[in-house]
Nucleic acid binder design. Structure first.
Lengths: 151, 151
DNA sequence: CCGGGACACGTGCGCTGCGCACGCTATTCT
DNA sequence: AGAATAGCGTGCGCAGCGCACGTGTCCCGG
């Protein structure tokens, strides 16, 4: 019984973690925006939108990446004018990453497109089933063991 | 309403696709097996277990990767003695990838461990909720747009 | 029967992303 | 004040991926 669920989730997760799945999810989503934002930099953009202005280290924890990776990606977003590095007023060593207005705008746009794409793929689901799936996925991804990524 | 579901799924998927999530899912899973099998080669192993003996091209479609990637990973599994390349009796050009007995055994072991890990993370869920989540995830990942990865 | 185009494979090559480690500057503690 | 610590950006090496080439095989048309 229960082991059936485990197998099913394992199988589905395997499919979901395929590179091509990620590709599909973000493919063509950044159409019309500058060169700086793509599927690689989007997690930094959206993560920063969630956390608000914060250091690269904190954002690294949020995004689940090394500091250096964040710094590089942030550099691209900065060049594209979507992100601003400003000195932390309380600590001269620290640098705060802050979204510019255009950054916020770009993030909103991308998020809308992403949500749209996901909703399209759920369009034919019975609404109740979709809700249950959404709640379960949220619980699994956000409240499960993934919550502590860099342990 | 419905847009709430879209946002929630988008957020959860973002979290799920983090590198650290993949890391957590497979971390330490290959303990005790040879050097050839790890989180990189496992998709090939399990994919081949699903499809049965097949060519690298077909497996590439199944796994969602380029042929070359499959060939490289298959090479590792071959070195580890988990996989065998044998000439296709019907086509002299083609090469069939076949799991050895040890390969089947390794795949079963890894799968059991993976299922175990997932079930542990679902241990405190209400059984009905877990079932609903499992069914929804299966539908989303296996019957959704991900079904055609290399379109 | 045979020759050319198509097919399947493995691999060299360049690109990209990642983590580690170094150097530098600012802070904090003794 | 001087030393130890913390935070940052970046150079470096490694690994994986896709593309494209060369090789061997199949198939069909002449």
């Amino acid at each position: 019984m229960e082991t059936e669920v485990g197998h099913e989730v394992a199988r589905a997760l395997g499919q979901l973690l395929k590179r091509s799945a990620r590709t599909w999810l973000y493919a063509g989503l950044t159409e019309g925006l500058g060169e700086g934002v793509d599927e690689v930099t989007y997690p930094v953009l959206s993560g920063l939108a969630r956390t608000g202005p914060c250091s690269a280290a904190d954002l690294a924890w949020e995004v689940g990446l090394d500091r250096s990776g964040i710094s590089r990606r942030a550099g691209r977003l900065e060049s594209a004018g979507l992100l601003r590095r400003e000195p932390d007023p309380h600590d001269g060593r620290a640098v705060l990453l802050v979204l510019t207005d255009r950054g916020v705008e770009a993030n909103d746009l991308l998020r809308r497109r992403l949500v749209r794409r996901i909703e399209d793929s759920l369009a034919e689901w019975p609404p109740e089933e979709a809700r249950a799936f959404s709640a379960g996925l949220r619980r699994f991804a956000l409240e499960g063991p993934f919550a502590e990524p860099l342990a």
